[in-house]
């Protein structure tokens, strides 16, 4: 019970704010990529869109693994295509 509460606190206090933080940047990034046709490759655009969708679903489902993975995925996209 205590463990579950602790896990829920980690999600609510750290992972959700972190995912929302990343979602702000990701949403702006996706709109920018679509409106200016400035994606590097089609895979870049697909990956960006997929991460935006993943972040939204992760926030809706509030699954810790999903949240961590989607945040990491966006950071990886940023680093890989910088």
């Amino acid at each position: 019970m205590k463990k579950r509460t602790q896990k829920s606190q980690v999600i609510e206090r750290y992972l959700v704010p972190a995912a929302l933080f990343v979602l702000n940047f990701c949403a702006v990034h996706v709109i920018y990529a679509y409106s200016t046709n400035s994606w590097i490759s089609l895979w870049h655009l697909i990956a960006l869109t997929a991460v935006l969708v993943a972040l939204t679903f992760a926030l809706a489902l509030k699954n810790s693994g999903f949240l961590v993975c989607s945040i990491t995925a966006y950071l990886l996209i940023l680093t890989y295509w910088w």
Partner: peptide
């Protein structure tokens, strides 16, 4: 000012 009208709306 770098992503069109959609970005401005956001």
């Amino acid at each position: 000012d770098f992503g069109g009208l959609m970005l401005k709306a956001l």
